[in-house]
Structure formats: C-alpha cells, structure tokens
Design a protein around this nucleic acid. Structure first.
Lengths: 118, 118
DNA sequence: CGGCATCCACATGGATACTG
DNA sequence: CAGTATCCATGTGGATGCCG
C-alpha cells in the first residue's frame, strides 16, 4: 500500500487516510454518471469537439457535458483545446492518464453488459 | 437474477435509455465510496464477517459498512449468510456477478495507484 | 458555438444513539 | 454482534436561461 501522506492530488480528503485509496480514488474520479461515457467515447474516437460529444451522447445536456468536461480537465484526465475557426470549436482529448483508463473502462463496459443481461 | 426492465432493475432509470448503459451502470453500481473497497477485500480474502470487514477497512463506520453491504446485497453482488454461533456472526461473500468484478477492481486499483503517484 | 449562472431535487456520506 | 433509526451536511444531476 502506498502512503497517501504525500501528494495531495487525489481530489478528495478521504483519499488521504486509508490504504485503499487507489481503488476508492478511481471510483471517486470516474464513478460519476457521465464521466466514464465521455472517456469511453474519447478512447474510441480520439479527439472530439463539444458538439460531437453532445451528439454522440444523446441523452446528455450541454450543461452536464460542460460540467463533466470541466471536472475531467481539472483532474487532468482530459485536455481542452480551442480551435480558431469560424465558428470556433473546442476539442477535447485524453491526457496520458486519461488514456491509461482504457483497461478500467473496458472492464467496466464488459462487466456492465453481462450484468444487464442477467 | 434480475431484469433491467423493472424500474428497480439496473438501479437507475438512466440505465434504460441509452446505449452507454453498460459502462454507466457499472459506474453507478460500484462507483460509490466504499463499494469497491469492500469488493476488493472480499476478492482477496474470500468470505468475511461484519467485524472482520469493519476492522480491515479502518476508516469505515459500522453504519456505512452496513448500508454499503445492504446495497451490494440488493444489487446481488454480495451474499449474506447468518452463522449460528454464540455470539452469532454474519458472513459476506461475493456472488458470481460480484466475483466477476475482479478485472474491474484490479484495473481500478492499478490505475488509481499510478494516478496517486503522479 | 460553447459555455456559465441559477435554482432546485434527490442521492450519498456520516455522526450519534439505540436495539434484538 | 450486527445492525437500525435519526438527523443533517454535502455531493451530484439536471432544467432553464443568458452571454461573449
């Protein structure tokens, strides 16, 4: 187990005082409603614009997409790039850490599929 | 088992109306604070009693442990068995579906460790 | 276009006290 | 021992509307 007394990068206070921080921290970072979907889309399609994401995830509102992306950017899982065109676009891509989530997302996807079928 | 057609089904209504349900549903089921830790412990140690779990996860209160276990049992990820001894014990073990979470938990653990170090 | 500001509803986390 | 019952604080999801 690692000592969580060092870097305070994990977002939440409760990541700092127990040895199960790693799995708990991951749950806290991507365990929210839209986060894993967004990462999943970016993993599959590469960089996507705001509208593209909004279209792909049909049931999300622009407010929630914006909130989620802001959060993911804060946690350094997603990069935000402003493209100067007319009209301008904003493109989102995964950071290295975000890309490293692939095994997690894949496993979640596979398990969820099985669970829903049962 | 369980069908996602009932409103109880996958736990949340939003699991029913989009195609990203699998990954989102998984996030909803184990994305809570203590759930992944509990599953992790049960994966590593096999069946554990309430006290054993409470001791292993030092920072959890018995209230939260009870709530989390109840939820996990409801979702059919954990089995609850009452052992008639004196004093009696209650033993928790993973269901088949719960055991199937191993790749997810492992991936979360590995990723979280890397994230915390960065 | 890609947001942000509000406001609200509900889910979740948690401390404390009590019980069969 | 293994919970339940309260009560409360905070987190999260989401609809609506404005804005550069």
């Amino acid at each position: 187990m690692h000592s969580a007394t060092e870097d305070e990068g994990c977002v939440a206070a409760w990541c700092a005082d127990d040895e199960w921080c790693s799995v708990t921290c991951t749950a806290h970072l991507i365990g929210r409603k839209w986060h894993p979907v967004i990462v999943h889309r970016l993993l599959e399609n590469g960089p996507l614009g705001f509208s593209a994401l909004n279209d792909e995830i049909e049931t999300i509102s622009s407010t929630m997409l914006s909130n989620s992306l802001e959060d993911l950017e804060e946690k350094e899982l997603v990069n935000r790039a402003i493209i100067n065109e007319k009209p301008f676009r904003v493109e989102y891509s995964l950071t290295e850490q975000g890309t490293a989530l692939e095994p997690v997302i894949e496993a979640m996807d596979a398990w969820g599929e099985g669970y829903l079928r049962s």
